[in-house]
């Protein structure tokens, strides 16, 4: 465990907290992509299947359960709970996620570590996580202006990815035996998707002002 990875995980947890607060306290899921949340639920449920046979630390196992629970709770609230379910707009949040899931499933089958079923599922989850934010980014783009909490949510997720990138660099240079080629590739793609958002986030938050983020 190094400081980059720890802060990355904390930033990831913070993103869940922000989103859960927003939809439970604010009673609205407006501006939040249910599609992205469903993709995250698929990502965590498939990657953390190994909860049943892999144990590396209590920290890891605990957070795996937390991630599955939080993403499931978010999907449940937006899809089934009143009044949140009435604030979700399927016409705005209509990104065709089958075009993300399909290619990621094929990539998982073809490009994985050692051709076992779990390695294929695991690689699929890594590829899908890389692109899971796209429906959310497209939704923000359509709306043009992004509510503060929503922008903090996306920023926390982006920070998590950036910190994980630093964690990989740190581990590569400090550990004798450490490679994660699939994760590095997908993680770099994933982090890249946030660059444009961060540019606009910085523009609207600089100078201590808390204006909503405006996207062109």
């Amino acid at each position: 465990m190094n400081i980059f990875r720890f802060l990355g995980d904390m930033s990831h947890i913070l993103s869940f907290v922000i989103l859960l607060l927003k939809i439970t306290q604010g009673k609205s899921a407006a501006g939040i992509s249910l599609r992205t949340q469903e993709l995250y639920m698929i990502v965590f449920c498939s990657r953390y299947l190994d909860l049943f046979w892999n144990f590396s630390s209590l920290y890891n196992s605990f957070l795996k359960v937390v991630f599955i629970a939080c993403s499931s709770a978010i999907v449940y609230i937006i899809r089934f709970k009143s009044p949140q379910k009435d604030t979700w707009n399927p016409e705005l949040d209509n990104f065709p996620i089958q075009y993300l899931i399909g290619p990621c499933a094929v990539a998982g089958l073809l490009i994985n570590q050692d051709w076992t079923p779990f390695e294929m599922i695991w690689a699929f989850s890594i590829y899908l996580e890389a692109v899971a934010i796209l429906p959310q980014l497209f939704l923000l783009q359509k709306q043009g202006e992004v509510e503060n909490l929503t922008s903090h949510y996306v920023a926390a997720l982006g920070a998590y990815r950036g910190l994980y990138l630093m964690n990989w660099v740190y581990r590569y240079f400090t550990e004798d035996d450490y490679l994660q080629r699939i994760v590095w590739f997908a993680g770099t793609v994933q982090t890249g998707l946030y660059i444009d958002f961060f540019y606009h986030y910085y523009q609207s938050k600089r100078g201590g002002l808390s204006r909503p983020v405006k996207l062109p």
């Binding site: 035996d177 994660q180 994760v183």
Partner: peptide, 10 residues
């Protein structure tokens, strides 16, 4: 020569 790491990250 480095090897693929065990799955110890989230």
């Amino acid at each position: 020569q480095k090897n693929e790491a065990p799955k110890d990250e989230l």
